[in-house]
Design a protein around this nucleic acid. Structure first.
Length: 448
RNA sequence: GUGAUUGUAGCUCAGCUGGUUAGAGCGCCGGAUUGUGGUUCCGGAGGUCGCGGGUUCGAACCCCGUCUUUCACCCCA
């Protein structure tokens, strides 16, 4: 059988894992500095925990897990004959791989509500799965690194999360534009236009502004069947420019819209203080597809790279109520590890040091010599120096080739003459220089 | 889900208009060279031409289906 990977998945080799760990270490430090604690949840959940949380499109992209028993007996003939995928799906599968980290987190909070102290701040770095078609920067298995707070309505949380984004991307050296909006502003616009019932279609159209332009957005709205006078009015708004100032006049008659603007102003004025390298911009076209967002929403684009968003998030006032915990508002952000990786790679921003540390390989000259060499290896390892013995008494050429390929910088030669010696020949493989060294000298040399 | 695109040795790729036994470079294994590598030279192994069907005297090449790759749309990190 020919080995191959499942669609949209990847293997990670040593250097890639090291680079990924570098990113995760930065994120972990920034999370923990601000009081977020780590949790983990299972890779799969009950199907009903996940369905209906991500919108229609999202439901389609959930990876379902086939029931392990005799699922065929649970299907009645009528449903099978109708080929109704939705009903059949629930019969055939009752578990699913997690689609994001937010919904499992909401489930976690409700289930552990008596053990945790609110406001509860957690971070989580785990893979998620989506049954999407792969393309640039899009995989079917990828990592999200999330920070969320639940149990506080305070807008200071939003401010902190913006600073968290800024601090992380600044440290990674990745120029980032943090776009923010507020769902209540969008809702207010729909309300004033009298198209609240078509809110989703409205946001989908608006979201395309930078891609298709103003006329494209209006065409899209027409295609979605929105009220034509509303579309015309919105066209005038677009022409005049939808700044925060303009919106405060336009949304006078919407209570929700006014609240949204208030919130947005608070977040913006407080978040610009102490911002490092990232740009923070209000973007009224930012909508986000996940339908559990209710207030502030975030999205981060990396500067200088053509890549989808490298992060996103927002406030969800009521996500836990689906699981039975009311009046508990949460807000959180997500870092897209895989896309951040691609950006850092493309812009050549990984530091040299992520590659493996220095180490030393002991050549194997035979049974007795190997035993002596292994004694050296043990002493070095005990002193925190990466050392290993070549396991077989192979030809030296082969042992050197191995060291080269593994990029081991030093090789030690414990031959018959050195078996009892206090100092042994150590060769620098890059320069070819060879010198006799004691244990202390080797420790100093390899540690650099 | 829609529309394109890709698949030949471990890797990167040639392979003419359909015509004998499908090639190269790199890598791998062995030797020149039994305790000092990277160079060089010599030899060797390695291929169901993604898979299934069809057309043809004959298919890596043409047709259909399918899987896979990459890209765009939708949506998203």
């Amino acid at each position: 059988m020919k080995p191959s990977l499942a669609k949209g998945t990847r293997d990670f080799s040593a250097i890639e894992v090291q680079k990924r760990q570098y990113i995760m270490n930065v994120l972990r430090e920034e999370f923990e500095l601000r009081g977020y604690d780590p949790i983990e949840t299972p890779s799969f959940e009950n199907l009903e925990t996940l369905t209906g949380k991500y919108g229609e499109e999202g439901d389609r992209l959930i990876f379902k897990i086939l029931r392990s028993g005799d699922f065929t007996s649970k299907i009645d003939e009528g449903a099978w004959a109708n080929k109704d995928a939705k009903t059949l799906g629930a019969k055939v599968a009752d578990k699913a791989l997690r689609y994001d980290l937010t919904v499992p987190f909401a489930r976690y909070v409700v289930q552990h509500q008596n053990e945790i102290a609110f406001p509860f701040k957690r971070y989580q770095m785990q893979p998620v799965w989506r049954a999407d078609r792969p393309q640039k920067g899009r995989f079917r298995e990828f990592y999200q690194c999330d920070a969320d707070v639940v149990g506080s309505d305070s807008l200071w949380q939003e401010v902190e999360l913006i600073h968290l984004y800024d601090a992380a991307f600044t440290r990674l050296g990745l120029g980032a534009t943090i776009k923010v909006n507020n769902r209540k502003i969008l809702a207010g616009m729909a309300e004033v236009l009298g198209i609240s019932d078509d809110f989703v279609a409205f946001t989908v159209a608006i979201d395309k502004l930078d891609k298709v332009g103003a006329s494209g957005v209006l065409d899209e709205m027409t295609k979605q069947g929105l009220n034509s006078t509303a579309i015309a009015t919105f066209g005038q708004w677009l022409e005049a420019g939808l700044t925060l100032e303009a919106l405060s006049a336009l949304l006078q008659d919407s209570e929700e819209g006014k609240i949204g603007l208030e919130e947005m102003n608070f977040v913006l004025t407080n978040a610009v203080e102490g911002l490092q390298d990232s740009r923070l911009v209000f973007d009224f076209t930012l909508a986000r597809g996940l339908n559990y967002y209710t207030g502030t929403i975030f999205e981060v684009a990396a500067d200088g790279v053509a890549m989808g968003s490298v992060g996103g998030g927002g406030r969800y006032a009521d996500l836990t109520s689906i699981f039975g915990l009311k009046n508990t508002s949460g807000v959180g952000i997500s870092f897209g590890l895989d896309r951040i990786y691609l950006c850092l790679e493309e812009l050549d921003l990984f530091p040299e040091a992520v590659a493996g540390k220095a180490s030393i390989l002991f050549a194997n000259f035979g049974e007795a010599e190997a035993a002596s060499a292994y004694g050296w290896v043990q002493k070095l390892v005990a002193n925190g120096v990466r050392a290993e013995l070549y396991p077989d008494a192979a030809k030296l050429k082969k042992q050197f080739d191995f060291a080269d390929k593994k990029q081991v910088p030093y090789m030690a030669m414990v031959g018959t003459n050195e078996m009892a010696a206090d100092a042994i020949p150590v060769k620098n493989l890059a320069t070819g220089a060879q010198e006799s060294k004691t244990l202390e000298e080797i420790i100093a040399l390899v540690r650099g």
